[in-house]
């Protein structure tokens, strides 16, 4: 195209590069220092070392936190995706008065400030004697993650020809069969994407977990504990691993959510 302005183009590219740099430089820095032998993150770098990784590998506290995170993440992914699917399918399938309120309420939790969410969860869960358990973290994360799952699955269902469902009924499939053989297969990529993303959100979530986890701390809460005690390059090692696992989940989700046209390539 002849009418592109080179200066504007260049500035836009620079803008993107700066944005990415701003986001990834600290993470990359943390990754570099996690492989540095020095005790404090300072330049020039010391020698290459995997000591910090060995240190966290041998630390039972890290394993405990990781174990809690994993249990919570997997359970939350399943529960939140089930809830999200239910919410999304209700929105797709039914028309009722107050539906827009229903959808808005269902998608509300991520917009609530996490501190308020955490306090509210703590107050509520302690009243029903569930505070300080792994289950309490699962409940709190389930509430926070379900809207993500719902949004993803809802988007997928909105791309579905409504005739598909009616066609299945018309060919002898009752409502359960249609759900099983038409709706779920159609939404399958989004369902898997929702599993990965909700797991990633739960992995990374700190504030609410901090309020409700009690002694069953998840990894992010543990990390805060480490930071309060002593600044150790082990944090860099844990951070790098957490970043890699989250990114893996997000990338898997994105691959699943590609449009069918892209997938053919």
């Amino acid at each position: 195209m002849g009418n592109e302005n080179r200066i504007i183009n260049g500035l836009l590219k620079l803008h993107i590069v700066l944005c990415l740099l701003f986001i990834f430089a600290p993470i990359a820095g943390s990754f570099v220092f996690s492989l540095n032998s020095d005790r404090f993150p300072s330049l020039p770098l010391g020698t290459f070392s995997t000591d910090w990784y060995r240190a966290i590998w041998e630390d039972p506290l890290v394993w405990q936190g990781f174990g809690n995170t994993l249990i919570v993440g997997l359970t939350v992914a399943v529960i939140a995706t089930l809830l999200g699917f239910g919410g999304a399918y209700t929105d797709f399938r039914y028309n009722f008065t107050g539906k827009s309120i229903y959808v808005a309420l269902a998608l509300l939790p991520p917009t609530i400030p996490v501190v308020i969410m955490g306090l509210a969860m703590l107050a509520f869960l302690s009243r029903i004697n569930l505070s300080g358990t792994t289950i309490s973290v699962i409940i709190a994360h389930g509430v926070m993650c379900a809207p993500f799952a719902m949004a993803i699955i809802r988007l997928r269902l909105s791309q579905m020809d409504p005739d598909l469902e009616a066609a299945s009924w018309n060919m002898g499939g009752n409502q359960w069969q249609t759900l099983r053989y038409v709706i779920i297969p159609f939404a399958k990529p989004a369902i898997f994407a929702a599993l990965f993303i909700t797991m990633a959100v739960s992995f990374d979530e700190f504030a609410v977990a901090w309020f409700v986890s009690g002694l069953n701390e998840t990894l992010p809460v543990k990390i805060l504990g480490f930071l309060q005690g002593q600044v150790s390059p082990r944090i860099n090692a844990i951070g790098s691993l957490a970043f890699l696992s989250s990114m893996t989940l997000i990338i898997l989700a994105q691959l699943l959510l590609r449009s069918p046209e892209d997938q053919k390539k």
């Binding site: 005739d163 009924w169 018309n170 060919m171 499939g173 009752n174 297969p185 159609f186 399958k188 069918p260």
Partner: peptide, 28 residues
């Protein structure tokens, strides 16, 4: 209910199942 009748329909949008093969569509 429509699933208890044997009144199959050919749809304007065709409404073929995109996640199934031709054979699986016909077997549905």
């Amino acid at each position: 209910a429509t699933w208890d009748r044997d009144t199959p329909m050919v749809w304007q949008s065709l409404a073929l199942f995109p996640f199934l093969t031709v054979q699986e569509n016909v077997e549905f």
